[in-house]
């Protein structure tokens, strides 16, 4: 008799199954996924055009960043942005109001694991769909890349670090809904700060000195600017590893915040329906 296939147990098993489900579900919606990804391209292309125009009018470079390097930055941007899509804090209102959380509460693991696993699985579909987009953008905008093997290795870790940090921070932000549903102004503020100080809008080297210093001590940079610059910038080996260390730090902070806020928040939850 054949030995039954060994199944993964516990948390790794949960992740494996949830991720596989996500891949299958999202692959069914590949057209919708694609339309969504195409819609997202407008943003970096606009930034790229603006900064290329500035660079050309300044004799080819701004703060040492050339037109080709801007192109590289915003093309890598499109992948990092996709890695950055996690469960939205706006989704918490639905989870709480419609009692979706009740089902998650009776399961024996912390509910964040489902979100982490599901969106992580989805990423594999996204990366596959992203490849042709990247190829097209590369043909159109002619980026200049100078990549080492080490940088590729660090990048492959850093995009997942970015994913973890943003997942957890937005989870914490979403949990504010346990206390109040008037959250849109707070979220607006958060996303604006993120836009300006993460490297999403522009490479952080273009910020005034004091703002760049602020960006250094905030988590946003490690979800956007840092992973992009690993590939598209020229960071020294030391800077590459300091970045990874900062990601580890922010993952730890994020996990702590999720644990603490969840403990107090979930006490305020009273299920409705479901």
């Amino acid at each position: 008799m054949r030995e039954p296939r060994r199944r993964l147990q516990g948390l790794p098993g949960l992740y494996a199954v949830t991720m596989r489900t996500a891949v299958q579900v999202q692959f069914q919606y590949r057209t919708a996924n694609y339309a969504y990804m195409l819609g997202m391209i407008a943003e970096p292309v606009i930034y790229l055009v603006v900064w290329s125009t500035v660079a050309r009018s300044q004799g080819g470079a701004v703060e040492g960043i050339t037109v080709g390097e801007f192109a590289a930055y915003y093309i890598v941007w499109t992948l990092v942005r996709n890695m950055n899509i996690v469960f939205t804090p706006y989704g918490w209102e639905g989870r709480i109001r419609q009692g979706e959380l009740s089902g998650m509460l009776v399961r024996p693991v912390h509910p964040i694991h489902y979100d982490l696993a599901y969106f992580a699985g989805w990423k594999f579909v996204v990366i596959l769909l992203w490849l042709p987009i990247a190829a097209a953008l590369t043909l159109i905008f002619r980026p200049t890349f100078d990549i080492s093997l080490l940088e590729i290795g660090v990048f492959l870790i850093a995009i997942w670090g970015a994913y973890l940090i943003r997942s957890m921070l937005l989870w914490v932000l979403g949990m504010v809904t346990f206390w109040t549903t008037r959250v849109s102004a707070l979220y607006d503020m958060y996303f604006t700060a993120e836009l300006l100080l993460s490297g999403r809008l522009l490479p952080l080297a273009l910020l005034p000195g004091w703002a760049a210093t602020v960006a250094d001590v905030l988590p946003f940079k490690y979800t956007f600017g840092y992973p992009i610059e690993v590939i598209a910038g020229d960071l020294s080996t030391r800077e590459l590893f300091i970045g990874l260390a900062m990601q580890v730090l922010w993952v730890a902070v994020g996990a702590l915040l999720v644990a603490v806020v969840w403990r107090f928040g979930v006490r305020r939850y009273s299920a409705v329906g479901n």
Binding site: W51, Q58, V62, E63, S184, A185, D188, L206, L207
Partner: peptide, 27 residues
């Protein structure tokens, strides 16, 4: 809510404009 949203959006846009024009005089 609309007003807050509008103010945040315009504020952001002004910052972006300032950032661009801190590196150039004309676009």
């Amino acid at each position: 809510l609309s007003l807050v949203q509008s103010v945040v959006a315009v504020g952001t846009a002004l910052v972006v404009l300032a950032l661009v024009f801190s590196h150039t005089d004309s676009l």
